[in-house]
Design a protein around this nucleic acid. Structure first.
Lengths: 104, 104
DNA sequence: TTATTACTTGGTTAAAATACCAAGTAACAA
DNA sequence: TTGTTACTTGGTATTTTAACCAAGTAATAA
């Protein structure tokens, strides 16, 4: 059934649909980071950050690797970065029509 | 502040993060459709479909146009379709590692 | 005018997501 | 062993989403 596929796809997209998670993906585009780095980045409780990461891990967006005390996360499917280009296009379009509206 | 930008981006992504909405975007990729078409497609209450569309409209993903009794929606930023390619890559990767796991 | 169609909006209820604190685990250090 | 660091997981309160029904609006038809 098609329904099930759309549900799976929605789960993946939903896993990115949060400001802190987007921020983390953006940072991870440059390479591996430990949870402690990501916590500093988003400035939330460690448990909150950890839960955000597990959402993305379950969705298949990131993987992790333990090294000593630290756990390093990295993007599993780098193409998610191409999302951002399109999102920027949407934001730009919003901005453009807003400017157009003001000009009328 | 960066925070605000990430929040805006999350709003756009969140607007696609629902099975019915994904299904509609997919259908709209082929061209304009009226709310009645989209209702048949997703098979939910008309009011539900209308609200989903307004979420996407507010996010800047679709626009609408009234013609007689019908309201036609279309994608405003076609690049959202490129999302799907990447989502497919994530699903494929999930599938691949699952197969790998079974093989071990 | 009244009726019908195609939508949207308001209201309500149920389900899901999010944040923090507290407690638990795993690796290393003393 | 005991302590510390770096995380994860459980619990709970709050907020956000989502679905349907009912009522409202705009365009057309009779």
């Amino acid at each position: 059934m098609d329904r099930e596929i759309y549900k799976q796809k929605a789960t993946i997209i939903k896993a990115m649909a949060h400001p802190s998670r987007l921020m983390m993906v953006d940072a991870l585009a440059a390479g591996e980071l430990c949870v402690c780095d990501l916590q500093r980045l988003v400035g939330a409780d460690m448990s909150t950050v950890s839960k955000h990461l597990s959402v993305m891990k379950n969705a298949g967006i990131v993987t992790d690797r333990k090294e000593g005390l630290k756990v390093f996360y990295r993007l599993r499917v780098p193409c998610v970065m191409r999302f951002f280009e399109c999102i920027d296009a949407v934001l730009l379009e919003q901005h453009t029509s807003y400017a157009r509206m003001l000009g009328e």
